[in-house]
C-alpha cells in the first residue's frame, strides 16, 4: 500500500488547506476528499431510515393524509416497519411500489 512519505525523489503534491483563516500546504486524506457538503434536509421529502423492501403502499398521488397515517409498510431487518405521515398534508408523489428494494435515505414520498 502507498505510504505517505515526504522524502525520496518524488515530491508529493501538496494542496492548500485552510484552518482558522490560515492556509497550509499539506496532503489530504481520502476521507477528507470524499466528504460530502452538507445540505439542509428538505422537510417535504421523506427518506427511508433503513434499507428494505416495500410491501404495501397505502397512498397514491394527490391523497390527503392525516398525521400518523401509515403511508408505507416495508420489510427491513427481519421486521415489518411502517412509514407514517409526520404532518397533515397532500401527497405530491410516492416513489416506491410494492416489491421495490431501496437503500437507506432513499426518497419514499413527498408532501406538496
Amino acid at each position: 500500500m502507498q505510504t505517505k512519505k515526504a522524502d525520496g525523489d518524488e515530491k508529493p503534491k501538496f494542496q492548500s488547506f485552510t484552518v482558522d483563516e490560515t492556509t497550509y500546504q499539506t496532503l489530504l486524506t481520502p476521507s477528507f476528499e470524499k466528504r460530502k457538503n452538507w445540505v439542509k434536509p428538505d422537510e417535504k421529502k421523506i427518506l427511508s431510515s433503513l434499507p428494505g423492501t416495500a410491501i404495501q403502499v397505502n397512498v397514491k398521488k394527490g391523497d390527503k393524509v392525516k398525521v400518523g397515517q401509515t403511508v408505507l409498510i416495508f420489510e427491513a431487518m427481519k421486521m415489518m416497519n411502517t412509514v407514517t405521515a409526520y404532518q397533515d398534508g397532500v401527497i405530491k408523489d410516492i416513489y416506491v411500489k410494492p416489491g421495490d428494494k431501496f437503500s437507506k435515505n432513499h426518497l419514499i414520498f413527498e408532501f406538496e
Partner: peptide, 8 residues
C-alpha cells in the same frame, strides 16, 4: 502529522 491535513 503536518504532512497530512496540516496535522489537524
Amino acid at each position: 502529522q503536518p504532512l497530512v491535513l496540516a496535522g489537524v
